[in-house]
C-alpha cells in the first residue's frame, strides 16, 4: 500500500467519522445583530483553513488516481472510471468471503451446508472417501507428531498448491511438483523439504474428493505413512490460509473464481437457481 502523509491520514480519519450522515450545512447562524470585526475575521480564517484542507485533499486524491492509473497502465484513472473496473481475482478475498458466509450458519463450524459436521466425524469422512473409490486410510490421530503434513489446497476439483509443513518450516509445490520458491512471507521457507513420494496420488485423490464438496475451496491434509498415504483431515473452514505473493494470490484467486462457478453447478443443474414466479419458475422462452 502506498504511503500517505500522517497528518493527512489523521485528517481523513476525522472526516471518515463524519461521512455516515449529512454534514452540517450553514452551521453559522444568520446574525441578528451585526457581526463584529472579530467574527468576520474568524469566518474568513475558517474559509482559509477549509481551502487549505481542500488543497491537501485534492492533492491526495490526484496521487491516488495516479496509483490507480498505473495499476491500469495509464497515467491517471478518472473518478468515473474507477466504478467500471472489475477488480482482480484474489485467493484471500474469495476464500474469506465464502467462509464468512458459511459462518453465519446456526452452527458456524458446520457451515450452512453441514460439510463441517461431516468432516469433523472420522466415520463419515471415511464413508465419503470410500464412496468415491479413494483407498486412503482416514486417521485423524495420524496428524501432528507423525512427520510432515502435506496440505493440498484444492479448488473444487482442481489442485492449486501443495504445502509441505513441519513445525514452522514450509515449502510449496505447484501441482506439477515445481517449487515456486519463497512465496509466503509469513512462513519460514525450507527449500530442502523433500517432496512427498506419492505427490501425484495425493493430488489425484484430492481432486476427486474436493470436486464432491459443496465449497469452492478446501484443504485436504495428508501424511505419508509406511503403508501409504493417510488422510488426516478435510478442512472446509481452515483457520489459517496462506497469504502469498500477489502473483500467487491472483493465480489461486482465479482458481477460486472458477471453483465458485463449479460449486454452483450442483444447484444450477437441479434447477434451484431458476427465477421464481408465483406457482413455479419463470420460463423465458414464453416471452421471446
Amino acid at each position: 500500500m502506498a504511503t500517505r502523509p500522517r497528518a493527512l491520514l489523521r485528517l481523513i480519519g476525522r472526516r471518515r467519522a463524519r461521512l455516515s450522515s449529512p454534514l452540517p450545512i450553514g452551521t453559522v447562524a444568520a446574525p441578528v445583530v451585526p457581526p463584529t470585526r472579530e467574527q468576520l475575521d474568524a469566518a474568513r480564517q475558517e474559509v482559509a483553513a477549509l481551502d487549505a484542507e481542500r488543497t491537501a485533499l485534492v492533492e491526495e486524491r490526484r496521487r491516488l488516481q495516479r496509483v490507480l492509473g498505473e495499476q491500469a497502465g495509464k497515467s491517471v484513472m478518472s473518478l468515473a472510471k474507477v466504478e467500471k473496473t472489475n477488480g482482480t481475482p484474489s485467493f484471500v478475498a474469495g476464500v474469506r468471503l465464502l467462509q464468512r458466509v458459511h459462518r453465519r450458519a446456526a452452527n458456524p463450524a458446520h457451515g450452512i451446508d453441514g460439510a463441517g459436521a461431516i468432516f469433523a466425524d472420522p466415520a463419515r469422512t471415511e464413508e465419503f472417501v470410500r464412496s468415491h473409490g479413494v483407498p486412503a486410510t482416514v486417521a485423524p490421530a495420524a496428524g501432528p507428531g507423525t512427520g510432515a503434513l502435506v496440505v493440498i489446497h484444492a479448488f473444487h476439483g482442481v489442485v492449486g498448491l501443495v504445502e509441505l509443513r513441519q513445525g514452522d518450516r514450509v515449502r510449496h509445490l505447484d501441482p506439477a511438483g515445481e517449487d515456486p520458491g519463497d512465496i509466503r512471507p509469513a512462513a519460514t521457507y525450507d527449500p530442502e523439504f523433500p517432496a512427498p513420494a506419492s505427490l501425484s496420488t495425493l493430488c489425484s485423490w484430492s481432486v476427486t474428493l474436493s470436486s464432491h464438496i459443496s465449497r469452492p475451496y478446501v484443504q485436504l491434509i495428508w501424511v505419508e505413512a509406511h503403508d501409504g498415504p493417510v488422510l488426516v483431515a478435510v478442512d472446509v473452514d481452515p483457520e489459517r490460509i496462506p497469504v502469498l505473493q500477489p502473483e500467487w494470490d491472483l493465480r489461486l484467486g482465479s482458481l477460486f473464481d472458477s471453483a465458485h462457478a463449479r460449486m454452483l453447478l450442483q444447484p444450477y443443474r437441479a434447477g434451484a437457481l431458476a427465477n421464481r414466479v408465483p406457482g413455479g419458475t419463470f420460463r423465458p422462452e414464453e416471452t421471446r
Binding site: 500517505r4 452540517p24 485533499l57 491516488l64 495499476q71
Partner: peptide, 23 residues
Amino acid sequence: RRRSVATVTAQVAILSEEVRSPA
C-alpha cells in the same frame, strides 16, 4: 467549502481503499 471538503474527503476515503489489492 464545507460541502466541497466533505465530498473530496469521501472521494479520498474511497480511493484509499481502491488502491489496495483485494487481499
